[in-house]
């Protein structure tokens, strides 16, 4: 099952990087969103697969991390970390989207190449 998770993470990362190398900020924002999904899944992979397979091939599913839920529980710590991460990435995504709107209003473009030429800081030499 870890393998499947790893495949998901790999694919999401590939698409994310591909989008982030694009020419428009909207695509880049989508790439960032995908990144946060993949990162969360990556943390989840650390808790190991939620099934214990005994030597006889008999499988014992682990329970959700709630006391008294099952004989064996999955690791709660990655979940707590991911929960925090989801909410934070939600807030950051919202900020990013607002930034898109504001950028467009200020510069009238979302093309990365046009933006990189827009605001070059001038050298500040005084004395």
């Amino acid at each position: 099952m870890t393998i499947l998770l790893v495949i998901c993470i790999t694919v999401i990362f590939i698409v994310g990087v591909y989008l982030m190398l694009g020419r428009e900020l909207k695509g880049i924002a989508m790439g960032v969103f995908l990144f946060s999904h993949a990162a969360n899944l990556g943390i989840l992979a650390m808790s190991g697969q939620p099934v214990l397979v005994r030597s006889q091939g008999e499988s014992l599913p682990k329970g959700a991390p709630i006391l008294g839920n099952a004989e064996m529980l999955v690791d709660p710590l990655p979940q707590a970390l991911i929960l925090t991460s989801i909410v934070i990435s939600f807030a950051v995504s919202a900020f990013l989207l607002t930034l898109l709107v504001v950028t467009h209003r200020r510069t009238d473009t979302l093309e990365v190449r046009a933006l990189s030429k827009a605001d070059r800081p001038a050298p500040v030499i005084f004395g």
Binding site: V6, I9, T10, V17, A38, M46
Partner: peptide
């Protein structure tokens, strides 16, 4: 990039 990160996740996940 994707394959490298995936590989590292695989290594880390296999510890658990």
């Amino acid at each position: 990039v994707g394959v490298s990160i995936g590989w590292i996740v695989l290594q880390a996940g296999s510890v658990a």
